Simulated assay, not measured.
Amino acid sequence: MDKPPKKKRLCSYNKQWEAKKTWVKPVSSDSMSTKAFCTLCRREFSIGHGGENDLTQHASTEVHKKATLAKGARNIGAFFVKSPAENDKIVANKASYVYRTVKHGLSYNSTDCLAKLNSALFNDSNVVKKMHLGRTKAEMITMNALGPKTMWDIMDYLSPTEEGEPVYFSVATDASNKGDRKMFPVCVRYFSVSDGVQCKLLDFYEDSDETANGIHQALMSCLEKYELDIRHVTAYAADNAHVNFGRHHSVYQLLSRANNRILKTNCPAHIARNACKHACDQLSVDIETIVLKVYSHFSISASRRGELRSFFAFVDIEWREILYHVCTRWISLHPAVERLL
Rank of each mutant, 00 (worst) to 15 (best):
E210S: 14
D209Q: 05
N266R: 14
Y99P: 04
A275F: 10
D174G: 05
H270L: 08
G50C: 04
V294W: 05
W330N: 01
V291H: 01
F311I: 09
L340K: 05
A70F: 03
C38G: 06
K264E: 14
D112A: 10
E307C: 10
S31N: 08
E338V: 11
E163A: 09
P5N: 07
V27T: 14
L292I: 12
Y99G: 11
G246M: 11
E338N: 13
P166Y: 12
Q253I: 12
A85L: 14
C222Y: 14
K94R: 04
S83P: 00
F311N: 03
L69Q: 08
A172K: 04
A336R: 00
V285Q: 01
I76G: 13
R100G: 14
P84H: 09
L146Y: 11
H248E: 12
K293D: 15
H325T: 06
Q217H: 14
M155Y: 08
H270E: 03
L254V: 08
A269H: 02
T111C: 14
V186N: 10
Q57F: 04
S296C: 12
R261W: 09
G77H: 03
A138K: 00
H216R: 11
E52A: 10
L133P: 02
G147P: 09
V285N: 02
K137W: 00
N14P: 06
H242N: 15
D124M: 05
S12N: 07
V24S: 02
M143F: 15
K7W: 10
K3V: 11
D180P: 00
V98D: 11
W17P: 05
L283P: 00
L117C: 00
D281T: 02
A92G: 07
A212R: 04
I300Q: 13
V167T: 11
Y226F: 15
R320E: 11
N144M: 14
T328W: 01
S33V: 07
A175D: 06
E163M: 09
D229G: 08
V291Y: 04
K25G: 11
Y157G: 05
Q282T: 08
T101M: 14
T173L: 13
D180M: 05
